[in-house]
Design a binder for these strands. Sequence first.
DNA 1: ACGGTAGTTCTCTAAATGTT
DNA 2: AACATTTAGAGAACTACCGT
Length: 215
Amino acid sequence: MNEQEMHMISDEYLVAKAKQGDQEAFDILCKRYHLLVKKSSYSYFLQGADRDDVWQEGMIGLYKAICDYQFEKNVPFFHFARLCITRQVVSAVKASTRQKHAILNSSLSFERKEQVDFSDGLSLVERFHLELDDSPEERFVNRENWHDFKSFLLETLTCLEYDVLRYYIDGWTYEEIANHLSVSLKSVDNALQRIKRKVTKRWLNDRGLARQYYA
DNA sequence: ACGGTAGTTCTCTAAATGTT
DNA sequence: AACATTTAGAGAACTACCGT
């Protein structure tokens, strides 16, 4: 499919195809909504976390929007996606402020100029946009990261773990997940601990730290 | 504001079971 | 046998709520 053909296809049509498992439609939507995700996610900053971590939250929001979009409600997909992306990023920032997640603490908005003291008066977000400004290479790398991570989850997690993760990300409690999946609360607990271990291992591997960490 | 309490979540560990 | 997956217990950490 060439660039021109791609632009002529409606979001709603692509969502329908993506829901049916069409990878190309999914890729096109990712490409089309990349900027929106970037705008939404880069408005926030999680200290101690990569810039990509927040961006990834935004992409999770987009993924949820594709999965949950209901055609019969006649709401344009764009509006629904924007809502899902923003909600996902805000939830992540809120979660990061919990003392329990100390490593991700101290989130602050990039928009507020008074939180930093730059002589040129630019806010953090404006500064970031200047620094990042959407190079094609960066777009490509980010998209690859997202697909890599999604593949990693599908390949590495068991069915139970994958289901638990999906509901956990949606904000369900252990008890709700356990009831919904007809497993014990402890099974949900254990599944989440395994998921965290696997994701941590992957994270360390990606950064070449696994050997030191597990030594 | 502070301390107590209950419920939830996290961490570590050991053991049982299934698969290769 | 080795490894992966799952289950379970115990205790710590955290959050929200309530009474003082």
